[in-house]
């Protein structure tokens, strides 16, 4: 009986998720480009695609570059999103409770379509006259306009900032849902015992929020690591591959240079990394449940 309920979704998932996963693996061992794409029999070339990806070296090894960029992007995003999200959660649920109602509006940045978010930030980061340069100039922080989107390092910061803006609410809400479970009595008795605000934060808030914090960090890592549309629409991975994350590298090989099998191989490598993180996460949860 249960199968009848599960069947439609399962059939869908097998055909459009499980089969593509396997098909991707097969494709990565074949030669699939524009000329062979529609042919029924594609030539198997073993691990050639993987070897090419790992050994390709001019002007740089793009796999290594994209892995490094993905790590930089993920770590920078997570550090700021998490810290700011955590801070906001504390502000709007503990310190300035009356603002809780309006703080809901902050979620807008999270549900904005990525393409709109990216043109908006592209506009704000515009070198000549963009609002961010104008504000920095007005504050006396810079004299000449910063070339945000046209130099690799600054472009990375631009996409990171756009994604932080987009991701803060996610972090905030997950921390808030942990915070509301901590009873006020705990803080009151701590105050009576003479604990100051910082001690209360480090000795009460953080330890009690540990499960929520772990969840935010791991989910945040996975979602940020596979980030794609926002960056693609903002920089397409440029300039000079400065913001080319692994997802964008795979897309470029497959859909701009039409080497589908190499694109498949790159995204397989990406998936393996995500699976390892996901596996550690499920193990961590199980350990928590046992303990």
């Amino acid at each position: 009986m249960g199968y009848a309920f599960v069947a439609p979704a399962l059939a869908f998932m097998i055909f459009f998720v499980a089969y593509p996963i396997i098909y991707n693996l097969i494709m990565s061992l074949q030669l699939v480009d524009v000329t062979t794409l529609t042919k029924p029999d594609k030539e198997f070339i073993g691990l050639t695609n993987y070897i090419n990806i790992f050994t390709q070296s001019t002007p740089m090894n793009y796999l290594w570059n994209s892995f490094a960029k993905t790590m930089i992007y993920t770590v920078e995003c997570i550090v700021f999103q998490f810290t700011i999200g955590f801070f906001f959660a504390i502000v709007y649920t503990q310190k300035a409770k009356k603002l809780k109602g309006i703080s809901g509006l902050l979620l807008l940045s999270y549900i904005l379509p990525a393409s709109v978010c990216s043109i908006l930030f592209k506009f704000m980061f515009w070198t000549n006259g963009g609002i961010i340069n104008e504000l920095l100039k007005a504050c006396g922080l810079i004299n000449a306009p910063v070339e945000w989107l046209t130099t690799p390092n600054n472009a990375m910061w631009s996409v990171v900032i756009a994604n932080i803006w987009n991701g803060i609410p996610f972090n905030m809400i997950l921390i808030v849902s942990g915070l509301v479970t901590i009873s006020n009595d705990v803080y009151e008795s701590a105050t009576i015992d003479g604990a100051n605000a910082w001690q209360q934060f480090t000795k009460i808030t953080v330890p009690l929020l540990k499960p929520a914090i772990k969840m935010v960090l791991v989910l945040g890592f996975i979602y940020t690591f596979k980030c794609f549309e926002l960056i693609y629409a903002m920089t397409s991975g440029g300039p000079t591959s400065g913001t080319e994350l692994m997802t964008i590298y795979a897309y470029r090989r497959a859909f701009m240079e039409f080497n589908f099998s190499e694109g498949a191989a790159i995204s397989n490598i990406l998936l393996v990394i995500l699976m390892i993180v996901g596996f550690l996460y499920t193990k961590m949860i199980k350990k928590d449940e046992v303990a």
């Binding site: 593509p20 098909y23 494709m27 498949a264």
Partner: peptide
């Protein structure tokens, strides 16, 4: 296994399915 399949698919990057589905959808 079924739940696992659903969980894994939540982790899949969009680029990942874009490539094989290009052929499948065709």
């Amino acid at each position: 296994i079924i739940i696992m399949l659903f969980l894994i698919s939540q982790m899949l990057p969009q680029t990942f399915s874009l490539i094989p589905c290009f052929v499948i959808f065709k």
